[in-house]
């Protein structure tokens, strides 16, 4: 009697946890693991049409050695570099300002900065696409005109095209990063600043020796997601240029996947680009994390 009760209890304990995690397990298997595995398989195949599939070894990967892929890789890397360069220091400064109790209207500014993150990329992208139009009357050119500057053809030159992309990204994600950094700032104990005051440190010293080291975990987190975000960028470039990217100035790796996969119906090659992208992002992040000493910390 006692014995059966025990096994029953044991068994019910055994099932319940699985029930609760099953939605996640199932969705992981169905929408993550299965597509990943089938992408890896497809990257070794030539998929000509329905039922017309053949294994071609590493040919898709050999085909990656072409100027377009390198253009896409270069653009994506430059974009990621700039977004990190802008979207780490700028939000830190703003977060410090907004975290000060003396700042007037800081709650208003916090929500105002956060608002763009709630818009859809496509809606925001279309707005910026028109703002960066090449006529004199478009938003950005009209502002330049006020300063007596000539209108610029923004979206048909490499440097200005990249600028437009980074501006859109900054506009959208600035507020989110500010929120991360503010929560990081609030975790830094006030005592540290107080004792620094007693030691006679000025604000710059406090920023360099207390605030930044205190924010390190948040900085690592923000950079890591920025690397993923930067390399996965697609929608911004798509709303600016659609599929006809003049001179490949906005061609990103994901857009290259899209073009080969859907525009040219070469799913095998597109899969190979996707797998390569996965490795690139992993390598970049591992380098970045080890530079910050993230792994060393784990071992301690």
């Amino acid at each position: 009697m006692n014995n059966t009760h025990l096994t029953y209890k044991k068994r019910s304990h055994g099932i319940i946890p699985y029930v609760f995690v099953s939605p996640f397990i199932i969705s992981f298997l169905l929408f993550f693991l299965y597509p990943t595995i089938s992408t890896i398989i497809m990257s070794f195949q030539k998929i000509a049409g329905p039922g017309d599939v053949s294994f071609i070894g590493f040919k898709n990967y050999q085909n990656l050695l072409n100027p377009l892929f390198f253009t896409a890789l270069k653009n994506t890397t430059i974009y990621t570099f700039w977004t990190i360069l802008v979207l780490v220091p700028l939000p830190i400064i703003l977060a410090v300002v907004l975290n000060k109790k003396t700042t007037i209207g800081r709650n208003v500014f916090r929500s105002a900065f956060f608002m763009p993150a709630l818009t859809s990329v496509i809606v925001a992208g279309i707005f910026f696409r028109y703002a960066f139009g090449e006529q004199e009357t478009t938003f950005i050119n009209a502002i330049l005109g006020k300063f007596g500057l000539e209108p610029i053809v923004w979206l048909q030159q490499k440097s200005t095209g990249m600028f437009a992309l980074v501006v859109l990204c900054t506009w959208r994600w600035l507020g989110v990063n500010i929120v991360y950094f503010i929560s990081g700032l609030q975790n830094i104990p006030d005592e540290l600043y107080e004792s620094a005051d007693i030691d006679g440190a000025n604000s710059f010293h406090k920023l360099m020796h207390i605030t930044l080291p205190g924010l390190k975990p948040v900085i690592i987190y923000v950079i890591t997601i920025s690397v993923y975000g930067g390399y996965a960028m697609f929608a911004e470039s798509y709303t600016y240029w659609g599929t006809s990217n003049p001179g490949g100035i906005g061609l990103t790796l994901v857009q290259y996947i899209y073009q080969t996969g859907f525009n040219q119906n070469d799913m095998g090659f597109a899969s190979a680009i996707g797998i390569t992208l996965l490795f690139i992002v992993m390598v970049v992040n591992i380098i970045q994390l080890s530079l910050f000493g993230y792994f060393r910390k784990e071992e301690d």
Partner: peptide
């Protein structure tokens, strides 16, 4: 053909007439 149209839209006229590279 789709690849050819992509190239015309992306590179040919842009590089020769707009960018003049």
């Amino acid at each position: 053909y789709p690849a050819a149209i992509d190239i015309i839209k992306r590179d040919v006229v842009f590089k020769s007439i707009r960018e003049q590279s």
